[in-house]
Design a protein around this nucleic acid. Structure first.
Lengths: 113, 113
DNA sequence: TCCTTATGACACCATTTGGTGTCATTTATA
DNA sequence: TATAAATGACACCAAATGGTGTCATAAGGA
């Protein structure tokens, strides 16, 4: 397992995997349960689960003949925080404010001449 | 261009692309400028830029013989918000608090018997 | 015990991904 | 005006990705 940002972003890059995470947010599910919710084979689901587990986003434990999967979303935090560093850039209100400030500064410069 | 969550997560999945975004957060750069900061060819950088632009994370405009790239991070917001839905799950403090509350409740039950 | 269910383990495949190198075109510049 | 610099446009490649199908094994249930 490797909960670094790379393994997490990689795990999040596939839409099927993100959907699996959403299902697991509601309830723990066995592999067949998950496969029943998608149009792809159980084998394909298994590979997705392996990548999610590699990213540390889920944990699984066997119980009888089932393997129950549970969400362990802590590693998402690193991706969330990485994105958070850009928050000030995408915040439109702040950008508008900056523009206003810059315009104001420019105006002052002009009047100071 | 397609600023949906899929295009954004896909663009963020590669470590080189994430580094390019960080560089562009500091300053707008031409393709050669970016290529000079990595050990891969300009052609490879070009492909990464195309994927970033496809996700709407950057915009570029030609200026003479240069193509200047600028960060347009608004689409990151959708990925950030998607992750935000899981925040309550990974928040350790909240989890600890819940554990405390549960322990307290269990204790009360005991004493109430 | 027999049959069914849930996985594990492979082998195989087409497409995508992340790189490379080369050549042509356009734009500054000495 | 030559020359150098910055891109664009291709062709080509190996490895990773996202699927498939098949067969074996283990665990429950009638």
């Amino acid at each position: 397992m490797n909960t670094g940002p790379q393994a997490v972003f990689r795990a999040l890059a596939d839409p099927t995997r993100r959907q699996i995470l959403m299902h697991l947010a509601h309830e723990n599910l066995a592999i067949s349960d998950i496969a029943a919710r998608f149009d792809i084979t159980r084998t394909a689901i298994n590979k997705h689960l392996a990548i999610l587990e590699e990213g540390g986003l889920i944990k699984s434990e066997v119980s009888g003949r089932e393997r129950r999967n549970r969400l362990t979303p802590e590693p998402m935090k690193s991706a969330f925080e990485w994105l958070g560093h850009f928050e000030r850039y995408w915040d439109v209100k702040l950008t508008d404010l900056q523009r206003e400030v810059e315009k104001e500064m420019a105006g002052k410069k002009e009047t100071e001449k």
